[in-house]
Simulated scan of single mutants.
Amino acid sequence: MLDSFFDHAAITDGITVRVSAQFLPEQSSAQEHRWFWAYHIRIENGSDRAVKLISRHWRITDAGGAVNLVEGEGVVGEQPLLRPGDSHDYVSGCPLATPWGSMEGRYTFTAADGERIEAAIPFFPLEAAETTPR
């Protein structure tokens, strides 16, 4: 069941990734072809072992079908260690050149025994609440 704040969730090997996205009209401009969203991620370790988030892999698609692949270490400059029952929250943002699009991806974790775990980040839409020019 989804937490009431989060709209989307995926579970992989006991790791739950929850997402909520919000359009930010004050940081967007239709005249400049720039729309911006903030997204809140909660990663929950429901497994019986500690895991360390080592990298992120995003697929960001705009309304025109343009795809931007983003890969990097950790999340917002951190590589959190999540023990069983722990969670980690962070907020980041995504600009697009169109008033709608989508995001999805995966996080790569390592367990203490060296096993790599690829945890899904659920698909979620990005939809501008307002598209009037500024």
Rank of each mutant, 00 (worst) to 15 (best):
A119F: 09
G77N: 06
R116S: 06
V91T: 14
I43N: 06
G101R: 00
I60L: 13
D3K: 04
F6H: 07
G46A: 08
L24Y: 01
I54V: 12
A9F: 10
F36H: 10
Q22M: 15
W35H: 10
H88D: 01
P99M: 04
H40W: 02
P125N: 10
W100G: 11
A120Q: 12
A120I: 14
F123N: 02
A112E: 06
L2Q: 14
N68D: 12
S20H: 13
P95N: 11
T108L: 10
G72E: 08
R59K: 15
P84F: 10
E127Y: 09
T98F: 02
T131G: 03
D62E: 03
Y39H: 08
I15Y: 03
P125Y: 07
F5A: 14
S92I: 10
N45F: 13
F6V: 01
L24K: 07
S28C: 09
A129Y: 15
P99D: 11
V17T: 04
S55G: 10
P95W: 06
G46C: 05
R56H: 15
T110P: 03
G72C: 15
I15D: 06
A66M: 07
Y107P: 05
A50Y: 05
D89H: 14
T108K: 01
D7Y: 02
A120Y: 11
I60Q: 09
A97T: 00
Q79P: 00
M1I: 11
F123K: 06
A50V: 01
P99N: 15
S28V: 01
H33Y: 09
R34Q: 14
T61F: 09
I54S: 07
D13V: 04
Q22K: 12
I15P: 05
A120P: 07
H40Q: 15
A38K: 09
T131E: 13
E130R: 14
V76P: 10
A9E: 06
G114A: 05
V17S: 02
L81N: 03
D86T: 05
E71N: 11
D89M: 10
H88F: 11
E44D: 11
G77K: 00
V75M: 10
E118N: 08
I117V: 13
Y39G: 06
G72R: 03
W37G: 00
F109C: 03
P125K: 09
A97Q: 08
W35S: 08
L24G: 01
F124M: 08
E118T: 13
A21W: 00
A112R: 00
E118P: 15
V67Q: 04
I54L: 09
A10H: 02
R18P: 02
E32L: 13
R116W: 01
S102A: 14
R49Y: 14
E32A: 13
